[in-house]
Design a protein around this nucleic acid. Structure first.
Length: 259
DNA sequence: CACCATGTTCCTTG
DNA sequence: CCAAGGAACATGGT
């Protein structure tokens, strides 16, 4: 999926194109993405409302809609392969359109090849999210205490959205590389210095990705330091990058630079 | 055909 | 009860 940086880029582009616009019609092309909301409920709730705001929370898109004075929250998530954008009403729809909203002469498209994402009225997932790693709320003390309480490997722990919201498989590897920490190290074994370094690097890695892009835009994966570079020379020491599996997912790292 | 993929949730196991 | 591990979800790329 798009991780925090990719979601942030989608939100920034989407925001000016939808704010103030009214939803004239709602078309659900794949029921799974609106669960647990029902099709009837979603259509009835959204039709005739106006987009008032759009914010990002972790990897979620939080839409606020208004109908008169009443306010409605709609939660979006891009799963592994989702995207949301606005196109002219006449434009052909993508093969894997999941939800289409008619906005007068334009339409909002949520497309998702694998349909792992969400477009729903159920906002429960937001309650379990940890702090935002950029802008506000990411405190060193809380981060340190949470790591102390876990025996999971630090790489797997970083994917826990309760710890910090928005890191995914790519940026977890990237942040650990830049912090010089082995992904296999149990979270509770990190030294205070390592924790501080990781706490500092997480926002840096994410902000850098928002600014320069990595996995989106033209489908091109830009300058990632370690992710997907198995066997290629470490950009720092030239030794080949390793790939291991943790929690069923790939981790890339440099066994020399990361202890 | 085999294996891999930016995520989350549910079920099983210990 | 809790933590950890693995499968499932669905489609496509190599």
């Amino acid at each position: 999926m798009p991780e925090l940086p990719e979601v942030e880029v989608v939100v920034r582009k989407l925001r000016p194109r939808i704010i103030g616009r009214t939803i004239r019609n709602v078309s659900i092309r794949r029921l799974r993405v609106i669960a647990p909301t029902s099709e009837e409920d979603l259509i009835r709730t959204l039709k005739g409302t106006r987009f008032a705001s759009l914010e990002r929370r972790g990897k979620y898109l939080v839409f606020t809609l208004q109908r008169g004075k009443a306010s409605i929250t709609l939660l979006g998530h891009l799963g592994m392969s989702g995207d949301m954008y606005v196109v002219p009403q006449a434009e052909a729809e993508p093969k894997h359109a999941a939800v289409v909203l008619l906005l007068g002469n334009q339409k909002f498209i949520y497309e998702d090849t694998r349909y792992f994402g969400r477009f729903t009225l159920d906002t429960k997932p937001l309650e379990y999210l940890g702090p935002e790693p950029i802008n506000t709320g990411f405190r060193l003390k809380e981060f340190r205490e949470a790591l102390r309480r876990s025996s999971q490997s630090i790489k797997v722990k970083l994917l826990d959205q309760c710890l910090v919201a928005g890191l995914g498989n790519i940026y977890a590897s990237e942040a650990l590389f830049r912090s010089g920490i082995s992904p296999r190290l149990p979270a509770r074994k990190l030294t205070d210095a390592q924790i501080k370094r990781l706490w500092q690097m997480i926002p840096k890695v994410l902000k850098h990705a928002i600014r320069f892009g990595t996995t989106r835009g033209d489908g091109y994966i830009g300058r990632l330091t370690v992710y997907d570079r198995k066997g290629k020379p470490c950009r720092v020491c030239k030794r080949p990058i390793s790939r291991i599996v943790q929690g069923g997912r790939s981790t890339y790292f440099c066994s020399k630079c990361q202890r």
